[in-house]
Nucleic acid binder design. Structure first.
Lengths: 389, 389
DNA sequence: TTTAGCACTCAAGTCTCCCGAGTGCTAAAA
DNA sequence: TTTTAGCACTCGGGAGACTTGAGTGCTAAA
């Protein structure tokens, strides 16, 4: 069932061209534009076979062919060439990401912004799955009697705060006691391992009257548990409208609708999360990790950029997204890593006809740069900690 | 130059009908649909005069009339009737806003969500202009050597945190000292009155070596000053696509483009801010405060809702927005108030052909409810503080 | 196995025609 | 003086006919 050489060549050229022009491609046009060493009739026969095998579709009789989901899948797995980023562009991206970044949230905002700008599609960046983060600190600050600010600091520099109601009688000292007790008992635990009972028993160590504690216990627990509810960064919505597949307003609306739904992106990425953990196959097709095509090995253009190679990424095409309204879209995602086996996601969403090669090289580079920055910052901290001792 | 009675009637009916149908309205149709006591010829004459006076436009000869910017302006100022919210709807909104709200940011998120859902347009909610907020607390929490979390608490329960680099040598105690010094010197000041010199002199009271302080001073200053950079809440983008004026993708794109520009909304609202302060006229037309039309005085349907009356709001129509890309839109905004003369904004953006009456009644009610909730919460705090003494 | 040739298909553009809702103007009616 | 009836005119938009051209499948020859 594998495709012979000619079929591969022709399929590749068809997808390349369709990505470029958004027009169904025909046999004669193909031969003349790409100087194929065969006649249009031969191409026609090949196309016909590719169609029978499900790699191509015909919008209507007597029109050119268009890649099917399966065709794109074959293309991204075996046919396309991922180009390296031109060094100027790489330098620009690196600078944009490096400047003035103290927090992971700033880095994510930048990453998303850069991706949408350089690819011309929609991009999204999600903070690490905080459920696996460790709790580092919990602080309770009195705002005014009856209201306190609870600040939860997680590993990898994630911070979440929220205001909670507390019993009027609690003093600033009580709050200090409570937060110290929580920290003493829960610091270092993973968020997902923290239970209500754990919070309860931690707080009982404060020897404060139980009646007071009862009122704040639940607030503290939910504040801690929900601190994974961090912000996602989405950029480039207007970019989508530039592509011909979204000229039809109803499609555009479907997509915007979907993307506005809180939680949808998390859902999509959870699936990747799953498949990363089990490092197994994806449901629709074994799609992950096409990281080692032979034709990709030609080196980078500058030695300085040598440390960026295409990395683990996942591509979901059309139906594979299993999301009504996104049938015409593809989603390329990858994960960045933080110390402590934490992972977060960045992704680019565009029409199925997106320039996969371009997107992959950009997202790879952004991911690599993020990993570098994070690692460097972690190293700096380790060093300075070392120095202190 | 004032419009006589018939002209007013006819203009009102035209705008009403155009808002409902989005079709240019013609004379004969108008007479038969609304049983006007005059003939179509008379209506035609009147329309022709209204057009000459600039209240109506004709998309092309031999088509019906459409309101112009000026026509809408006359409509919202003198012609439309603002209906009260049906009590069930009011109750629903009130419940949605009341539930589990501890923070101003939650309230804003809810308010924006409710507005976009109930009006079917796009809505936005902005936090109070923090430059006029008072600084209440500044806390510095050690995250790890070299990095600290600075938490800035403003009046009205606004909280902003960010991670800053600090000299490696600073200890947790140093941080405590610094934050206490800042609080002691700056607490109670308005954000806009805080200068770099003030921070500087505050921190010198810590008697820490100047070399250490120099490194953190600027960070602290910018963290405090930029704490007004709070999040805005925008909902209902997909709603816009449902309206016929945005079926043309390029218009839709213009709007989405504009709205994606960080800062645009703030800019639009700054202008309102200005005009609220000087309580003077708006540039294009004296547009604010049409709050006392006589025909609006018929009471609410239930006594329970009696405390909600249409409030100060501002309507900007088409060109008045002075924003390229939003020429076909209108923007209805109002301000909610917080203790200490703080003000924030909520607004609804829709096609120029939006249902102003509906939007105004909803936004008024939401504003009123927000003000109530905020005031009640402030009262509770005052009471409990009182009790403690 | 490949190619040349031919007949066939069909979307999309263009042209024409026609309909109807709408207008402005004028002269008669109120 | 104001309103109405009547009439001629306008023009967007929909329906239908026609053309064009890029594309296909099939068959027979190279």
């Amino acid at each position: 069932m594998a495709l012979d050489h000619r079929k591969k060549d022709i399929l590749k050229v068809i997808v390349d061209d369709y990505i470029e022009t958004a027009e169904p491609v025909g046999s004669k046009y193909l031969v003349s534009k790409y100087h194929l060493p065969v006649s249009s009739a031969t191409v026609r026969n090949t196309m016909s076979e590719l169609e029978q095998q499900g790699y191509l579709e015909q919008p209507h009789t007597s029109s050119g062919r268009v890649p099917s989901d399966k065709g794109y899948r074959e293309y991204v797995e075996n046919l396309m060439q991922v180009e390296w980023l031109p060094p100027e562009e790489a330098r620009g991206i690196r600078m944009a990401l490096t400047e003035q970044v103290n927090e992971i949230s700033t880095l994510l905002r930048r990453a998303s912004g850069v991706l949408s700008e350089t690819t011309g599609y929609l991009s999204v960046a999600l903070p690490p799955q905080a459920q696996s983060s460790q709790l580092l600190q919990v602080k309770l600050l009195m705002i005014e009697p009856g209201r306190a600010l609870i600040v939860v600091v997680l590993s990898a520099g994630q911070v979440k705060d929220r205001i909670v109601r507390i019993p009027d009688l609690l003093s600033a000292e009580d709050l200090l006691k409570i937060s110290q007790a929580i920290e003493a008992n829960l610091a270092g635990m993973k968020l997902k391992d923290i239970t209500f009972v754990a919070v309860q028993s931690a707080m009982q160590a404060t020897s404060l009257p139980e009646s007071l504690l009862n009122q704040i216990m639940y607030e503290a627990y939910t504040a801690i548990k929900q601190s994974d509810n961090l912000d996602s960064y989405l950029n480039g919505m207007p970019n989508l409208f530039a592509h011909p597949e979204f000229q039809d307003i109803s499609r555009a609306r479907n997509v915007v609708d979907k993307l506005s739904q809180e939680g949808l992106l998390f859902g999509l990425l959870d699936r990747q999360w799953e498949s990363e953990r089990t490092s197994g196959q994806l449901t629709p097709q074994p799609s992950d990790l096409p990281e080692n095509q032979a034709d990709q090995k030609r080196g980078p253009t500058t030695p300085g950029e040598a440390d960026c190679k295409p990395c683990r990424y996942m591509i979901r095409i059309g139906q594979e997204l299993q999301s009504e309204g996104l049938e015409d879209c593809s989603f390329v995602t990858t994960t960045y890593t933080l110390p402590g086996k934490l992972m977060g996601f960045i992704g680019v969403l565009g029409p199925m006809r997106m320039n996969y090669s371009r997107v992959i090289s950009h997202i790879s580079f952004v991911r690599q740069t993020m990993d570098d920055l994070i690692a460097r910052s972690a190293r700096l901290n380790r060093d300075s900690q070392h120095k202190e001792q």
